[in-house]
Design a protein around this nucleic acid. Structure first.
Lengths: 128, 128
DNA sequence: ATATCTGTATTATTTATATTAATACAGATA
DNA sequence: TATCTGTATTAATATAAATAATACAGATAT
């Protein structure tokens, strides 16, 4: 279910966050879906419980998850993320990447193509 | 000339690399332009010389700079970077960002708009 | 030629952070 | 009531970034 690389420069908890975000964004995990408990996932991935918790708590802070009174962690509704704010945070990252890509020869057409590959591949859940 | 934030999570040498890349990509620094010496920049930024050298050497490895026999570091021609390979490395980064942005409501039109803002703002040097 | 600039290299130390480890508490659930 | 859950705390370990202090040798300008 999750792909972690302990040799990567990127911290395990961040890799975990990316993995979970992707499951949410592709619609595999929908609103109110329950995530594996800290301890279970810890055993499954042979990673320390604290590391799992750090990822969960961070995702909660960002609005992707919520935790209910010792019942577990669950997927939060999209609008808890404050999508507009988040998009504005993403913009400079995009523009830095775009600038570098343009320098390397990226055309507008190719960028649009990449956009459409993404929409085609991922099954977005409209009911959310 | 350079903007560094010692409190950032991103290492100083990586911030320096980003800064230099941007100067190259916006055409402020063109092919064969000389960069400040390791020691000078070290003093100017009050950063350890080794940190500067790490940034320079890494940019050399990536093909953005070259160093000539104790004469200094200089901007390399674009094609030393192997643009096609680099673009392929950039693609997955783009798609991850695009996927998240789509989840947050990004439209194709907005992405194209961001692309055009980038081309308009930066003065790309065609003579390269 | 000589002082001074350049990159290059090496070794040690400090600092920050990620990760693991070992526990403990208290509410939720079966 | 036993066992699940999240939450919290403290300590130890590992890794990497950054600083520090030097040294060597080629390039350059005076």
């Amino acid at each position: 279910m999750f792909e972690l690389d302990v040799r990567s420069r990127k911290p395990i908890y961040e890799q975990l966050m990316d993995n979970i975000k992707e499951l949410i964004m592709t619609g595999v995990l929908t609103t109110d879906a329950k995530l594996p408990s800290v301890r279970m996932l810890s055993k499954e991935l042979t990673v320390n419980p604290n590391t799992i918790q750090k990822a969960y708590r961070e995702l909660e802070r960002e609005g992707y998850l919520y935790s209910a009174n010792r019942k577990g962690y669950f997927v939060a509704p999209v609008d808890w993320i404050k999508p507009d704010e988040k998009l504005n945070e993403l913009k400079p990252q995009f523009q830095q990447l775009i600038q570098e890509a343009i320098y390397l020869g990226l055309t507008k057409e190719q960028l649009v193509e990449w956009f459409e590959e993404t929409t085609k591949g991922g099954n977005v859940d409209d009911s959310r």
